[in-house]
């Protein structure tokens, strides 16, 4: 194809997205579109399965049977969501195993928030309330993104995730209304998870490299800063209901903007965690790689068994 022809195709392609038409896997798409989607969808999938770890480590210690089944179901959903997203990514011609390889070798990123440790039971509340809260803000607009398989996966994810944040908030509420010790546990969790949750919505707009292109492809509807503001504005009143204090002395209502002003985010910390120097980066990767390697003989055996069974069937048929 000549350069002009490609330009023409690209223009038609952008026009389709502009008209809110969906792009399906077999449609022609610019190479950059494909690559960007593989990167973003797989990053999202990786975040789901790495995100299973901090919560998964509390399943055996959940304080009641009711909490235990809720947490199990939630962490299981995260596996399911990872699976939906990997599947969406596979329609772009890259296998789940290749994507795992990228994760395990550190080539692919995942949400940095999961590199913080889950230290107390209240962290299960804080993660559900804040981390899932921030995730939902990111995810809801994606139900309408331009790439069909991603949009469909996100619709399923959002539908299923509606209980996750409530589950977390309920844990926080119970703690906040419990004994002083429980309330302190809840406050401590909020203190530790608040800032990482704000960082989770991405670098500030002036530092964000992908925003303009992502907006055009409907991978984003709002900028990082807008999303962050939305998250803060909706979360502060929830903290009030809990009677907990957001750990930001500069946080205050701005009448003119009808939004909360907030303090400076420590972007240096964010950068270090992204680079792999967070408290749990190494452990998280070790857990993922370990599970994958320990599972290899199992996956191989299942495949070998299926092949033998198929061969026997074919032999019988002859």
């Amino acid at each position: 194809m000549s350069e002009d022809q490609i330009k023409n195709l690209e223009a038609q392609f952008e026009a389709r997205i502009e008209r809110d038409e969906k792009i399906e896997p077999k449609d022609w798409m610019p190479e950059k579109y494909r690559k960007t989607h593989i990167r973003q969808i797989s990053q999202h999938a990786h975040s789901e399965i790495v995100g299973m770890l901090p919560e998964g480590n509390w399943i055996t210690r959940a304080p009641s049977l009711r909490r235990k089944v809720a947490l199990l179901a939630k962490v299981q959903d995260e596996a399911g969501h990872g699976l939906y997203l990997y599947s969406a990514c596979e329609t772009l011609g890259v296998s789940r195993d290749e994507l795992y390889e990228q994760l395990h070798t550190g080539k692919a990123k995942y949400s940095s928030i999961f590199n913080y440790p889950a230290l107390t039971w209240a962290d299960m509340g804080a993660i559900g309330w804040l981390v899932d809260g921030a995730a939902i803000i990111n995810q809801v607009p994606l139900c309408n993104t331009s790439f069909g398989p991603y949009a469909r996966a996100m619709i399923r994810v959002c539908k299923e995730e509606s209980f996750h944040q409530r589950q977390g908030f309920e844990i926080m509420l119970k703690l906040a209304n419990g004994t002083p010790e429980q309330k302190e546990m809840a406050q401590d969790a909020l203190n530790r998870w608040w800032w990482p949750s704000l960082m989770m919505l991405g670098p500030t707009d002036d530092k964000s490299v992908h925003t303009a292109q992502s907006m055009k492809w409907k991978l984003k509807r709002k900028t990082n800063d807008e999303l962050r503001q939305q998250f803060i504005d909706q979360t502060v009143p929830q903290a009030d209901v809990l009677g907990l204090t957001i750990p930001d002395p500069d946080l205050k209502w701005n009448k003119d903007r009808k939004s909360y002003d907030f303090g400076a985010i420590d972007w240096e910390e964010f950068l270090q965690v992204v680079k792999g120097h967070g408290p749990m980066n190494k452990e998280r990767m070790k857990a993922r790689v370990g599970a994958w390697e320990r599972g290899k003989w199992v996956r191989d055996a299942a495949m070998a068994y299926a092949e033998k069974k198929q061969a026997r069937k074919e032999k019988q048929a002859v």
């Binding site: 299973m52 998964g56 399943i59 235990k68 199990l72 179901a73 962490v75 290899k296 996956r299």
Partner: peptide, 22 residues
């Protein structure tokens, strides 16, 4: 079985084991 959630040989099997635990 709950100990295994997140550590299964692959996602499909992980989800299945968690279902049994649930």
């Amino acid at each position: 079985l709950g100990e295994l959630t997140g550590h299964g040989p692959n996602l499909e099997t992980d989800i299945a084991c968690t279902n049994i635990s649930l």
